[in-house]
């Protein structure tokens, strides 16, 4: 096994809380739910296992860190072929399409779906998932949004909808390099605020506004 300190990216004299912070950050970073591609999911999973082992080793070493332990919680709800019990029209076809999708056989799944005359939320959802797995994110977005709008109460559609919505948000990351968070904008808006306060009290800080 690799050096657990190195795996977690902490120094050997790091405190328990530092180790835990680093650990939680890495768990978030390598969470398999970030990945739709099976290959990447697997690699992320391996990383996670490595990180868990490292953390476990370190928490065994120090007696005080026993309160928290990763339980190997499998949050991989991902996509399972037999998840939904279908009823209603075209139940057998939808179940078959799901099985094909879980086997990564997208042309077959598409053929099954194309043969269905009904355009309900499930149809849009499954088609959206096929597009998502093929990297057609524009189409996936369109179809999954339609599914969600038709049936907002369905947790599966809602989860997929939120996932794809979030994937289109601008990337943000707390950059450790830029220490102060006070930009020139903040300074100006702060001054304007201060000016308003002064004016309320009868004074004036900035004469121009």
């Amino acid at each position: 096994m690799n050096n657990p300190y190195k795996t977690l990216g902490v120094s050997e004299d790091a405190s328990d809380s530092e180790i835990r912070t680093a650990y939680l950050k890495l768990v978030k970073k390598y969470h398999p739910d970030r990945y739709t591609d099976p290959d990447l999911k697997e690699i992320a999973n391996e990383k996670l296992i490595e990180i868990n082992e490292a953390y476990e080793t370190l928490s065994k070493r120090s007696s005080s860190a026993n309160d928290f332990r990763w339980k190997g919680e499998q949050q991989q709800q991902g996509y399972s072929g037999s998840g939904n019990a279908y009823s209603g029209a075209f139940a057998a076809e939808f179940a078959r399409a799901r099985t094909f999708i879980s086997q990564n056989n997208f042309p077959a799944a598409k053929a099954v779906l194309d043969a269905i005359g009904l355009r309900n939320a499930e149809w849009f959802y499954l088609y959206g998932i096929i597009y998502l797995r093929q990297g057609w994110d524009n189409k996936a977005n369109e179809f999954i949004t339609t599914a969600y709008q038709q049936e907002p109460g369905n947790p599966e559609y809602a989860a997929a909808y939120n996932m794809i919505r979030n994937s289109g948000n601008p990337y943000t990351r707390a950059t450790s390099s830029s220490g102060g968070s006070c930009s020139s904008c903040d300074v100006c808006s702060g001054l304007v605020c201060a000016d308003c306060c002064c004016e309320c009290m009868g004074g004036d800080l900035l004469r121009c506004c």
Binding site: Y30, R34, L40, D137, N138, S167, G168, P170, Y171
Partner: peptide, 17 residues
Amino acid sequence: SFLLNNALNKAIDAYDL
């Protein structure tokens, strides 16, 4: 905005591995 950010986020996700 969705398309551009989505593509870049995917690249970043893969880059993290």
